[in-house]
Simulated assay, not measured.
Amino acid sequence: MDLPRSFTVRESGHRIHNPFTSEKLATLGRALRLAPGTRMLDLACGSGEMLCTWARDHQVTGTGVDISTVFLANARARAEELGVADRVAFRHADATGYVADERVGVAACVGATWIGGGVTGTVELLRRSLAPGGIMLVGEPFWRRAPDSRAVLEGCHARSEDDYRPLPELVEHFGRLGCDVVEMVLADQSDWDRYVAAQWLSIRRWLDAHPDDELADEMREDLATGPARHVRHQREYLGWGVFALMNR
């Protein structure tokens, strides 16, 4: 049970595995006005940057769950680096269907709503761990522009236009799920650049160090085509944001 090695190669230089900068992650943490001691559950937590930095900055506690052994090792190292290893814990598990043993003040799935089969299922999953009055955090792409070709869909890793919603429709969808949207922090095109373009350098350095690896051809093709795909499609058509929700 782990992520494909190609994924961890691409994102080996990342602490945040989404088009979100450390500055915007900090902005989100401040915006939520978290009380010290707030307990969090972060499903598909990646390298644990949200939990670790918020434990340092806002004195939260909590658990991160992820399928990647590589990212979880990074998360544990980050917790030690920031001096918060006594406040956060990380579990190697499939976040699909994961429910906290005790209800939490913040339940998050930032950028991995596939664990619930989409936004609707992920909100329902997070609710199962949420204490009354708690906040859910959902990170999700949305269409900045309507896709107008199959190439755009493929460049945005979408099977059809229905895979994502335009931003107004996404916000309205949260309402139909019985949620109040109480905060949001959105990525911009520069944030997409920092997320995607940073992968190119990671890939190139990995290729230089591992020219004969069985993944080399795949990663070489990714590096050869990825930059044009990003600037032509993903950067122009796809948005991304984290939305804070409370049950009505």
Rank of each mutant, 00 (worst) to 15 (best):
D2M: 01
D2G: 05
L3S: 09
S6E: 09
P19Y: 01
F20D: 00
T21W: 11
E23F: 12
E23K: 13
L25C: 09
A26F: 04
T27K: 12
R30W: 07
R30E: 14
L32P: 07
L34M: 05
G37Y: 11
D42M: 07
L43H: 06
A44R: 02
G48A: 05
G48F: 01
E49C: 07
R56D: 12
H58L: 09
G62T: 02
I67S: 08
A73D: 13
A75W: 00
R76N: 11
R76Q: 15
R78C: 06
E81R: 00
R87E: 12
R87F: 10
A89E: 14
H92G: 05
A95S: 08
T96G: 11
D101E: 15
G105P: 14
A107Q: 02
A108W: 04
A108I: 00
A108C: 08
V110I: 15
A112E: 07
A112Y: 03
W114H: 09
G118Y: 04
T122L: 09
T122G: 13
P132M: 13
G133S: 12
G134M: 08
I135D: 05
L137D: 06
L137I: 06
R144Q: 07
R145A: 09
D148E: 15
S149K: 10
R150Y: 00
G155C: 12
C156V: 08
C156G: 10
R159G: 15
P168W: 10
P168M: 14
L170C: 03
V171C: 06
V171F: 04
E172T: 11
G175C: 13
C179I: 09
C179G: 06
S190V: 12
V196H: 10
W200A: 03
R205E: 14
W206A: 02
D208Y: 00
D212L: 04
L215G: 02
L215E: 00
A216E: 02
A224I: 11
T225E: 09
G226H: 07
P227L: 11
Y237H: 15
G239W: 11
L245A: 13
